[in-house]
Design a protein around this nucleic acid. Structure first.
Lengths: 227, 227
DNA sequence: CCCATTATTCAACACCTGTTGAAATAGGAG
DNA sequence: CTCCTATTTCAACAGGTGTTGAATAATGGG
């Protein structure tokens, strides 16, 4: 080492990195790796900056994760809240299909947020739970409302407990989004593109017969997702 | 690397810490923490030895994990295989309830093996998959056979695809075992002890109506688990 | 033009991880 | 008793993690 290690410029690079760009990178890495496996250095690499910069914008890795979710959750929540509007008089089966479609639209490409909703996070990092539980609660409350309305309208069996039915419907949709793309093409001969939709249709077919007051009544046609 | 199981022909001594004790400790820690989060030092601490000793009996952390599973899986497999015996003429609904009971009996207290069956591991550590996939396949094959027999006996709707039905039934049971003990007592007012059983009954109630050829026919009484 | 603020980086800390090679310990064989 | 070999530990490595404090460059206001 005959040369003095010349320190590279420390100041801001010509291209400034906004907090939103950090959130983009963080979202991508969190989505792929999950909360625990994602490293701040990987996020920084993707954003094109040093890991320390994250601490200028966010208090901690956890705070960064919360910020990512705070950006995503409202859209899901809004869709689900609108779906639960009691003035929606479409058949309950169709509204439950919409529940699956909303999950599909917002969570299809984001394992990180799926893991969160699934509740893994609540187990792993207790610090996260209170704030995030408050974000998840309205989501399940909306779905639960659809079941309650279905019972009131005489379409759903009154013995069905909305809370448990919500749990079953939503949890399975998360599993479908998570593993069916890789599992179904092996089990049956299906292109991975159709695996999720095929699974969703089969699931609602079974689930709706399970909760409907009149299971003989056929399912209405289920529209494909639009996006 | 040397791992001679039981035959120590004229071995030097009964070792203070046998491989089985390491497996016990590893099983406990893996069960609580999962494969990735469990550390070899934690396992060694529980076994009362140094982490390096693990490498005398097992080639790697992964090999240790595989050894733990190789000890557990056969029992589950045997129960499920016996259940799928075509000479079992009990009502299909009751046999499906037995599927849930088998999962309950063997996996209730072991999140680690649940995570494995769920397929997380296959995603995370590719090295594990081939050997373990071969252990999981007969499990799902047995359940699938029960559905196929149910269709042949005119108890299950012929449109039901045994593979997908197996996926739905088993995946949900894993979710029930995983999260209902902590979630259900909050949602409804239930002691955590009854949460799992309540969830299982509600699940089979919905699921069986969903797949049964005659959904009006009531479920047979579902016996509580014995152990 | 200077100066304070903001944005960014560097280097390091303290800790944890799976893994390994060498050294110590023991118990039985000769 | 001595030696041999199976067991067990110690210490360290190389790499990873989240996090922090100080240093630095660019920017915009006075």
């Amino acid at each position: 080492m005959p040369f003095h290690p010349v320190p590279r410029p420390r100041g801001p690079k010509p291209s400034r990195i906004a907090a939103s760009q950090l959130l983009d990178a963080a979202q991508a890495v969190f989505a792929q790796e999950g909360l625990q496996a994602a490293s701040l250095r990987a996020i920084a690499r993707k954003a094109g900056c040093d890991a320390a910069l994250i601490y200028y914008h966010f208090a901690s890795k956890e705070a960064l994760f919360q910020a990512v979710l705070a950006r995503r959750f409202p859209a899901v929540l809004a869709d689900m809240h609108q779906l639960a509007d009691p003035s929606d008089t479409r058949p309950t089966a169709l509204r439950l299909w919409d529940v699956l479609l909303i999950y599909h639209r917002h969570l299809r490409d984001d394992p990180g947020i799926r893991a969160l909703i699934r509740g893994e996070i609540v187990r792993g990092a207790e610090g996260l739970s209170p704030l995030l539980a408050d974000q998840i609660r309205p989501l399940t409350a909306s779905i639960s409302a659809v079941f309650a309305q279905g019972i009131a309208r005489g379409e759903v069996r009154p013995e069905v407990q909305p809370m448990l039915a919500t749990f079953f419907l939503a949890k399975m949709q998360l599993e479908i989004l998570d593993v069916l793309p890789s599992v179904l093409p092996v089990l049956m001969e299906l292109p991975p593109e159709e695996a999720v939709l095929t699974g969703m249709r089969a699931w609602l077919d079974i689930f709706w017969r399970g909760v409907a007051l009149d299971p003989g009544h056929p399912l209405p046609p289920l529209p494909a997702p639009i996006d």
